[in-house]
């Protein structure tokens, strides 16, 4: 049975997590309520998994993760947090986090997460992923497949701009524009004829 360490500065949260994890049948080797102790305990016990909150006094969960990654400790880190920011998740991902859970969904997801991580797989809260997607504007014009930049390019093509003009207007290289054009043609399944894109854009694309 894998050994687990839990760190959270909120006592209720800490105890709740501990009891919950134990109820799932895991062995909790130690608990603590600040980042520095957490790092020291990880170095001391070398648990298989560490469940860390991000906002903690001393060191944040993110910093503990960074330290664990930089000295290549074998412990796999799961961040359990209220933060739903993409930037934080990306930073954690850079540091090699194994699991990223939102506290509000922990009750449903923690079991799954621990199993995955124990097998050496990544687990990212599906709710987080939906949030990341949700950020984007939903287009209902059949252009869902196009990237943001591609839609911008398409809009300008509809305004009869040349590739060079588009490049200047969007502060990108002309080659990039050509690249986008090719992608759009492919994604929209347009015939590979001259001006096919221009014709389609003028006909279909309205701002």
């Amino acid at each position: 049975m894998p050994s687990i360490l839990i760190a959270d500065d909120h006592p209720f949260s800490l105890m709740g997590t501990k009891v919950f994890v134990e109820s799932l049948g895991y062995r909790v080797v130690d608990c603590c309520s600040n980042g520095i102790t957490a790092l020291n305990l990880i170095k001391l016990h070398l648990p298989d998994i560490a469940i860390l909150d991000i906002n903690m006094p001393g060191l944040s969960g993110l910093e503990v993760l960074q330290q664990v990654a930089s000295v290549r400790l074998p412990t796999r880190v799961i961040l359990l947090t209220m933060h739903r920011e993409k930037s934080i998740f990306e930073k954690a991902n850079q540091y090699g986090v194994y699991g990223y859970l939102l506290k509000e969904f922990a009750q449903n997801e923690l079991d799954d997460c621990l199993k995955k991580v124990n097998q050496g797989k990544l687990y990212i809260s599906p709710n987080l992923q939906s949030e990341l997607v949700q950020d984007k504007t939903h287009s209902k014009d059949g252009l869902e497949n196009l990237s943001f930049a591609e839609r911008k390019v398409l809009a300008l093509i509809a305004e009869h701009k040349t590739s060079k003009q588009i490049a200047e207007l969007l502060f990108i290289a002309e080659k990039t524009v050509e690249h986008h054009r090719a992608n759009i043609i492919q994604k929209l399944n347009l015939p590979k004829e001259k001006n096919s894109l221009l014709v389609w854009a003028t006909a279909n694309y309205k701002k």
Binding site: K86, S87, I88
Partner: peptide, 23 residues
Amino acid sequence: HPVLFDQIGLVLNIKTLVERFEN
């Protein structure tokens, strides 16, 4: 206030900001 600004670093923060701004 951008969350955990000092730990995320300027570059990533700008990128997030820009992405959100674009959307």
